[in-house]
């Protein structure tokens, strides 16, 4: 009991701040998703004059509208979000792992490589996004200029749905590699050297050591990094918002940017909130299934 009270004391400051600035907005968002709230019927405090809220509870109508009315383009944007997340997370983990393995070898100049490879982490992401957009520019961009100079012709980096998805994924991967690489490197370095030595005594070659020691030992780190990667990428906003603006013609719009367009650009607060709840539900279901599958395989899970 004493322990309990002490524990609550320790978590209290964080929880109070979270309750006020995260949980409350989150619950109000969930509530608003069941209403027809927009900027003409929410509470407005205009100087001394307070106009009370007059929106109504409309049950699940926002949700059924989103799923059924073509203008809300739910399925298209959902599909794009899944592609965006998959195309990002898989290379993030694989490239991160590959680079970590290389950096974990005893080679000269390791520190310099490490610094250069994690450099993008130090660049504020809105600046990186602007730089990539400048590089991808169809007419005066660096890439197309180089391509034209060597006679390959222009590529519609931000004008063709497929190329644009490729372009934003590359930009986002560039941003995400340092974190994934460092995480994997941390995982690799915490594997006990005795394991490798024992394997060598048994005559294991490099590939066998990788498959039988490195991968299994790294699995918990990789699995957690994958889960976090999926959650963050699914909701990642900056790169799409600043590089392609969701274009061309909404081809790179994802659920998070799309919810923003409805909730803020168009002030359809109820619709925007419903979209956000849908995102939350998708990720909850994904995480639950993910953790369950991992547990079934007898692995230490993220939770």
């Amino acid at each position: 009991m004493v322990k309990n009270r002490l524990a609550y004391m320790f978590i209290a400051p964080a929880m109070v701040v979270m309750a006020l600035l995260v949980f409350y907005p989150l619950f109000s968002g969930i509530y608003l998703s069941f209403t027809n709230a927009d900027q003409f019927n929410t509470t407005r405090r205009i100087g001394a004059n307070v106009i009370p809220a007059s929106y109504q509870f409309i049950g699940l109508q926002n949700y059924t509208d989103i799923l059924n009315i073509p203008q809300y383009e739910f399925w298209r944007v959902f599909g794009q979000t899944v592609l965006w997340t998959g195309f990002n997370v898989v290379p993030h983990i694989l490239i991160g792992l590959a680079l970590a393995l290389l950096l974990n070898r005893k080679i000269k100049g390791r520190t310099i490589y490490r610094i250069l490879l994690i450099l993008p982490w130090a660049v504020p992401s809105y600046i990186s996004a602007f730089v990539w957009r400048f590089i991808y520019n169809g007419d005066i961009g660096l890439l197309n200029n180089l391509m034209r100079d060597i006679g390959l012709g222009s590529v519609p980096w931000l004008s063709d749905p497929g190329w644009t998805m490729f372009a934003v994924v590359v930009a986002n991967t560039w941003l995400a590699i340092p974190f994934n690489m460092v995480t994997m490197l941390g995982g690799l370095q915490s594997i006990s050297p005795e394991l490798y030595e024992a394997a060598e005594v048994d005559g294991a070659n490099a590939l066998q050591k990788f498959l039988n020691i490195t991968l299994p030992m790294l699995r918990p780190v990789m699995m957690t990094a994958t889960l976090l990667g999926v959650i963050w990428t699914f909701n990642s906003f900056n790169v799409i918002f600043l590089v392609s603006e969701g274009g061309p013609a909404r081809a790179t719009e994802i659920l998070a940017t799309w919810a923003w367009r409805w909730g803020r650009d168009r002030s359809e607060i109820g619709i925007g909130a419903a979209y956000s709840v849908i995102i939350l539900l998708i990720l909850l279901v994904f995480s639950a299934v993910y953790v369950r599958v991992l547990n079934r395989r007898g692995q230490e899970s993220a939770l």
Partner: peptide, 23 residues
């Protein structure tokens, strides 16, 4: 508490801007 922390990462942050502003 652990799960709630994870869940907060699942709600798109951008949509919390206006409620946060009001608070």
């Amino acid at each position: 508490v652990m799960i709630v922390f994870l869940i907060t990462q699942m709600f798109p942050g951008a949509i919390l801007v206006i409620p946060l502003y009001n608070i």
